[in-house]
Design a protein around this nucleic acid. Sequence first.
DNA 1: TCAATGATCCCCT
DNA 2: GGGGATCATTGAA
Length: 212
Amino acid sequence: MTDVPRPGQLVTHDELLGRPEVVAPALLGCWVVTERPEGTTAVRLTEVEAYSGAGDDPAAHSHRGPTPRSAVMFGPPGHLYVYFSYGMHWCANVVVGAEGEGSAVLLRAGEVVLGEELARGRRPASAVHRDLARGPARLTAALGIGPDDRDLLLLDPRSPVRLHRGTAPVAVTAGPRVGITHAAELPWRFTETGAPTVSAFRAGVRRRPPAG
DNA sequence: TCAATGATCCCCT
DNA sequence: GGGGATCATTGAA
């Protein structure tokens, strides 16, 4: 028996109710654990973003009502919303708030705390420890989360992807969200204060300059 | 600094 | 029912 770090108890349904910008910072320090045939990996969350489905957040995928892609967001809290981004990446969210609301928390970055060797095998060989889960697509890659995990209940002890409480309180810093073009001014990005695994800050970069 | 890359969704027929 | 802009990004240069 080796001395392996262990997560806390599973996050509960009730802990995920409430406004996303209130629930999101409480998820910092929590562990996302994935159990696969090849082994277990876990990431301790250091960066998340809140997206509100209450109709006040044009950056939320749920903003225009349920679609085939975003239907999971309108389900009960605690489920995994996975979407495909930029033609090559998968990003993971935790559904929060009441059923039918459409709010979610994007898992932006974390630190690999279990199964580093396995995580490293899912990432480019050049990645150093700090960068293994630094960024939303890197985080899903390191954990091996993909389209097959859509809608999984993270609060179920039998689920292969779960959300556990952390082992210690976390100091939280709030700031503007990253990489979006709408409502980027809302301070709904939450990071663990001083964490080296927080992703690079690139707010609302345009892919092409405005015409003229 | 910028190319890669494709599902999704709006809007028009 | 179909075309085309959009996009909650990353990695290499």
